[in-house]
Write a protein that binds this DNA or RNA. Structure first.
Lengths: 203, 203
DNA sequence: CACTGCTCATGACAAACGTCATGTGAGGAG
DNA sequence: CTCCTCACATGACGTTTGTCATGAGCAGTG
């Protein structure tokens, strides 16, 4: 029996510590490194070369997906998986596109997580069935690249003039994109559109 | 030595289970009940009458603060504490106003948490120093009750007409409140105001 | 090559919005 | 009792929007 070397990255010390303790109970798993931020996770991974990196999606510095992207090129032998509280369909897609092998919500039990780590280590993938269903039913973003960009700039409630300036577009164009985005999303106005797009992980 | 009977409520199974395991290592603490939702937490508390209820702030059904409020009247002997990922000043204030004895971020370690549970059980209070500093520097909400109410209704990007209807106010009045709220918060428009108020936990 | 879809623009109009002046009534503070 | 604040309202004003028509340049596809 081989021992799986695991890197644990989560900014919540409470969870990270508790998780490490629980995984330590599994005698084929060994937590060889822990990290509380994105950059720290990268550094620890370089130093300890784990078999599997368990990454929280929301971390200070760099989120789980970008850490996974970096790891993919730097340590091809290291499988990555994402654990998260907020299972947005868009996040799942981004994660899979970044080569992440598993995407699980924090609502699973530690025992299940251990099983998933083994699955991933064996070279297989795992996606939470419910999240997968959501992602499939949610579908792809209907927004074009510019529409998405403009919508993001509108996300903090900025007026059109400011968005236009920051995007180097004319105000009329910005209004057109915003209008198109809102109608594609079935929203009454851009602010509601922002909310919807966020919910679906499209921004 | 008395044993402290603890109720653990958190919708993230991973965390709840891990936490229960870690707290079980402390021989003066006993996790007598677990819950994944607000209503479930209430039911479990009634059934098991714990000494201390450790409540996650964000749970389906009812959030930690409202559970704490209910517990305060139903089980006066049960001390409550809030654990959360997002330490917004406003949440801290609401929690303390609801009679919560401790407010801690999930970035603490399990050992620290155990200590805090003991502190709370002994009748003392605990507030994370950093959160406390934030809360003090952030100050109170400058908004009146109605301003807050209207701002909340505006939170999902609804047009003024809809807000007016839902608040049973005239559109002009709604605009006035929204305008007042935005200027008090130093925001350019109501949407930015919503964002700011959220950041500070005032909505 | 024609066709389609994305990008970017302009101009125009109606609706929604922000702001201000102004007024009434209720309730607390002095 | 008076003063002040808050809640609520109206009407009016200019500005910011959403929406639509229209058009040009530029990619990719059949």
């Amino acid at each position: 029996m081989t021992t799986v070397r695991v890197l644990l990255a989560d900014d919540e010390h409470l969870i990270r510590g508790a998780l490490a303790a629980l995984l330590a109970l599994e005698d084929d798993l060994a937590v060889v490194a822990e990290a509380a931020t994105g950059p720290e996770a990268l550094a620890m991974a370089r130093a300890h070369r784990p078999d599997v990196a368990v990454l929280d999606l929301e971390m200070p510095g760099a989120d789980g997906v970008s850490v996974a992207t970096s790891l993919r090129t730097e340590l091809p032998g290291c499988r990555t998986m994402i654990v998260t509280s907020h299972g947005l369909p868009g996040h799942l897609k981004r994660a899979l596109a970044a080569g992440v092998r598993a995407f699980v919500p924090k609502t699973v039990s530690a025992r299940q997580l251990a099983g998933i780590i083994r699955t991933v280590h064996a070279g297989n993938r795992y996606v939470d069935p419910e999240l997968a269903a959501d992602a499939i039913s949610a579908g792809d973003s209907p927004l074009t690249a510019r529409e998405t960009e403009v919508l993001e700039l509108a996300a903090d409630g900025a007026p059109v003039a400011e968005i236009a300036e920051r995007a180097s577009l004319s105000q009329g164009t910005v209004r057109n994109y915003l209008s198109a985005a809102a109608s594609k999303l079935g929203a009454e106005n851009r602010h509601a559109a922002v909310r919807l797009a966020r919910q679906r992980g499209w921004v």
